[in-house]
């Protein structure tokens, strides 16, 4: 192949037989691979839609599971999922936003220390979710004595989504043009007011987009929840109750309940529909964030 670079004239499109076969082989491989992937993807999506749609209706969403989930709906599971997400966000968002503000606004001043924070977050982002589950079980459930509860699960997920929330918020804040920082400083406006009243509102779409990504990540998560928020499929009365997240529900129906597959597919469809909505919202907001620059005249 380097010949093509060295002697460009000799490689005129498919002019020699060797190149012809090579080109054809590459071309067919690329086409076949892409069609294969898209085929499998459509198969997967079609399966979920097809098998799920036959289960999902309004009744499914508002009734409680019966006979270990084989029949009935997923109302308590949706409630638990939402509660877990609320806990996760309530912790991860403020913490993440504050950290992101430090990373983007004081990076210069903080130097190595701030870079250390960034590195530690990148490492955290690579930790497997099952390990977050182990940690959450040891720290929140046992050490802090929260037991298997929505609170433990939510806090564990908060730890897990923290890096992604921080990194998106940070890049959102960095995208805010310097002219506003300078403009505010020139009016004698303090840095804290600048951050709170100007930069954060200006970066709001990006911040929410990051939050949405975090929610999506948290909602898809199973391994970190199995031994933190637990399996109980009753309607939770408080965040100190154990609650079953929707992904855990799918897992349990598939693995532990004979004949649970139809409802598992129903739940999977609900989960995927929610994820698509959340991710699209995140994307839309992120694009809006790109548009929000000071107008040029």
């Amino acid at each position: 192949m380097p010949d093509a670079v060295l002697y460009p004239g000799s490689a005129r499109a498919g002019s020699t037989p060797t190149f012809f076969w090579r080109n054809l082989a590459l071309q067919s491989f690329v086409w076949l691979a892409s069609l294969l992937i898209i085929g499998v993807f459509l198969w997967l999506l079609g399966d979920i839609l097809w098998r799920g749609a036959s289960r999902v209706d309004w009744e499914f969403l508002i009734s409680v599971p019966k006979s270990a989930g084989r029949s009935g709906g997923i109302a308590p599971i949706i409630v638990s999922t939402v509660l877990i997400l609320v806990v996760a966000i309530a912790v991860a968002f403020p913490l993440g936003l504050a950290t992101a503000a430090l990373l983007s606004e004081y990076a210069r001043q903080g130097g190595a220390k701030v870079r250390g924070v960034g590195l530690s977050l990148d490492v955290l982002a690579g930790v497997p979710s099952i390990v977050f589950g182990l940690f959450g079980n040891a720290f929140f459930c046992v050490w802090m004595g929260l037991g298997f509860s929505i609170l433990s699960g939510g806090l564990t997920l908060a730890c897990m989504i923290l890096p992604i929330v921080i990194r998106t918020a940070e890049s959102g804040l960095r995208m805010v043009p310097d002219e506003w920082r300078l403009g505010a400083a020139a009016l004698g406006v303090s840095r804290s007011t600048t951050i709170v009243r100007i930069l954060i509102p200006a970066a709001a779409p990006a911040l929410v987009a990051g939050l949405m990504l975090g929610i999506g990540r948290a909602m898809a998560e199973t391994a970190a929840l199995i031994f933190t928020s637990g399996y109980v499929d009753r309607m939770p009365r408080s965040v100190f109750d154990s609650g079953r997240a929707i992904s855990v529900h799918i897992y349990d129906l598939t693995m532990n309940v004979a004949g649970g597959d139809p409802n598992a597919y129903g739940s999977a469809l609900v989960l995927i529909a929610l994820l698509i909505v959340i991710n699209s919202a995140a994307l839309w907001l992120a694009n809006r964030a790109l548009d929000r620059k000071p107008s040029r005249s």
Binding site: L102, Y106, V114, G116, S120, V131, F135
Partner: peptide, 22 residues
């Protein structure tokens, strides 16, 4: 400003300390 910096640093320390805690 000093208070804000404190708050932010505290949060960042928490976030960074999480890895260590784990």
């Amino acid at each position: 400003d000093r208070r804000l910096l404190w708050t932010l640093s505290l949060s960042a320390a928490t976030a960074a300390g999480l890895l260590l805690l784990i």
